[in-house]
Structures are given as structure tokens and as C-alpha cells.
Computed example of a mutant assay.
Amino acid sequence: MRAFTSDHFVLPLPEGHRFPMPKYRLLRDRVAAELPQIRLEEAPAASDGELALAHDPVYVTAVADGLLSPAAQREIGFPWSPRMAERARRSVGATIAAARTALVEGVSANLAGGTHHASADKGSGYCVFNDTAVAARLMQAEWHRRYTARRLSPSTRARPEPALLRVLVIDLDVHQGNGTASIFADDPTVFTFSMHGERNFPFRKVAGDLDVELPDGCTDEPYLAALDRALDEVWRRHAAHPPGLTFYLAGADPHENDRLGRLKLTAAGMAERDRRVLSALRERRIPVALSMAGGYGQDIHETVSIQARTLALAADSWAAWSQAAGEAVEQSLA
């Protein structure tokens, strides 16, 4: 399985800042040491044009050129610097690369990303650009371009692919994906599902297509039951038009020891969450690009362990996807 990294682009933070920047390097090192089935690749940087698919060009320029106001920087939670801007581009680029790969190979991942609080014209909550929104819009544009080329080609006899790529966002970070919901509020081609803490940040939620709010202290059993009900609802709503690509924000912050989470999932519960999502997508042959999203454990190594387990399960799903694809090819040639 291919996974994309951007941890070489470190954001300089003031002494005592609570954002756990080292977790990205630690996760990459853990994957390299323990998960040989995952091939790590450095992420490309997203271009201004790609970012403008989901963001106001004025905002993109402000981030690139250091024109963010002090208030805007406070809302994001990071001071501006050239490395801050470059890291934000790379995080989006990693999700773009993961989405392109997933459409071909079934499963891929960004070892960062999940910056779901960024809206079209501003950042928020440690999120500068919305990597999921940019990648979704770009994949839709590229899909339509390929479809048009196939439709106009006189040499192709294959059944043409649908012109419209429908996208599903499964956001299981403990915080609601308000930025993603706002960007796609009037877009019926992107379905946003967020399951999150009811009383957690952001305190003013932006309604998505399906929001499931959980009480403080929610444990494994009620969490997984709520997830099963929500996924059933997602598939019911997509019965006529299944999604062609999913973005899965696999936040580690619902874990019981997360500083900012307020839920009480165990490590086993987190793994079961990932297993159920990945199995449901694989059974329906829906490609998925994962991002790690939030994770603010009291012990940073515990957060890294949870995220490494998510990636190991994703690699298992990729292997099963690849095996099924190979068997389908053999059957067609028999």
C-alpha cells in the first residue's frame, strides 16, 4: 500500500505550544520500522490552482505571501512562516496523491491531513487548508476529464464510466468537520458524514449531510452501535447512486486518553471502528483515501500507536482489495 508523508516540513512553534508536531515524524518512523507492506512516499505540494478549487484565491494568496492578519493566525492556532505555508501545501498534496492512488489501487493514505476545520476563506483549529475538500474537487475534475476523453474517442469500445464522481466523506475525528460541511453545503455530489463529540470544538457546528453527536464519556459499545446505524443510513441514502471515492478521516482523538477528546474509546474500540469502516467500503468496492486527522494523547506514543494500527488495518484492506481484483481478472480470462 502506498502512503504519503510530509513530516520533513516541520512547522516551527513557540515553546509550550500544545500541538503535537513530533507525532508525524514518529508515525513515519514507526511505519517504516514495523509495516513493510506500506511504501512511504514524500508528498508533492498542492498548487495555487488546486487549492483554489476549494478555497478563495484571496485566502490562498494570504497564506502563501504571509498576509494573514494576527486574528486569522490566532484562529488557525499557528503563527505564519514560510514553513507553515509550505507544510500546509504538502499536507493537501499528500491527500491528493492518496486519492489518486486509491482510485487505482483501492486504498491509500496520508500520514497527516484531515484538516477539516478550514473553510473556503479561512483556517481554524490547527487547519490551514482543507485537504479533503481540495482533493475531492480535484478528483472530480480529473474524473470528468477522463470520462470526456473516453466518450469522444472513436477507438474505445468499453462501457464509458459515469461522468460524475460522487464522493463520500466519513469523518470520525472527535471534532465536527465544520469546514468540510460548509464548503460542500450546496453540493449534492459530495456527502459529508461526521460523528463527533456533541460538546466539543467547534462550539458552533455547521450541519453536514449526516451528523451524529455523542455525549462526553461515550465508550466503545455505544460508539460502535452509533457508527453501525450511521453507516446503514449512509448506504441507504446512496442506494441509487453509490459513491466512487471515500475520504476517511480516522482521527485518534476519540481515544480515552486524548487531551482534547472527551470520549472514552479504548485502543481495541478504535481498531474495531477502523475495521468496520474499511470492511464496509471494501465490500462495496469503494476506493478510500485515509488521513490521520486529530490525535492529542497525553502520551504522544500512544497516539502514534493508534494511528499505526489504523494504517496496518488499511494495509490489510488494501491486500484484500488487490487479491479480489486479481481474482476478478483471472475469472475474466478463464
Rank of each mutant, 00 (worst) to 15 (best):
L249T: 07
S194G: 06
R273Y: 04
A163F: 09
P254K: 07
R275I: 12
D258L: 07
R237H: 10
G177Y: 13
G197R: 00
K264E: 07
L260M: 12
A240I: 00
G177K: 10
N178T: 02
Y223V: 01
A271N: 11
V169D: 13
A230S: 07
R259W: 03
L249R: 10
P160S: 02
L165V: 04
P202H: 00
D173T: 04
L227K: 06
S155L: 13
L231K: 11
L227M: 14
C218V: 15
L168Q: 01
P202Q: 01
G208N: 10
A207L: 14
R204C: 06
R262M: 04
P215W: 00
P242T: 04
F203W: 09
R276E: 13
D216K: 13
V277T: 04
G251P: 09
R151F: 15
H175P: 02
T192K: 02
V277S: 05
P242K: 00
P188W: 13
A207R: 06
V190N: 09
L224M: 06
C218L: 11
A158F: 09
P254I: 05
M195V: 11
V277E: 03
S155N: 15
I183A: 01
L227Q: 13
D228L: 12
A181N: 05
Y223I: 06
E256H: 13
F191L: 07
R236N: 12
R157N: 15
G177Q: 00
D186E: 10
L164T: 13
A240E: 12
E213M: 05
G217N: 04
D186S: 15
D220M: 06
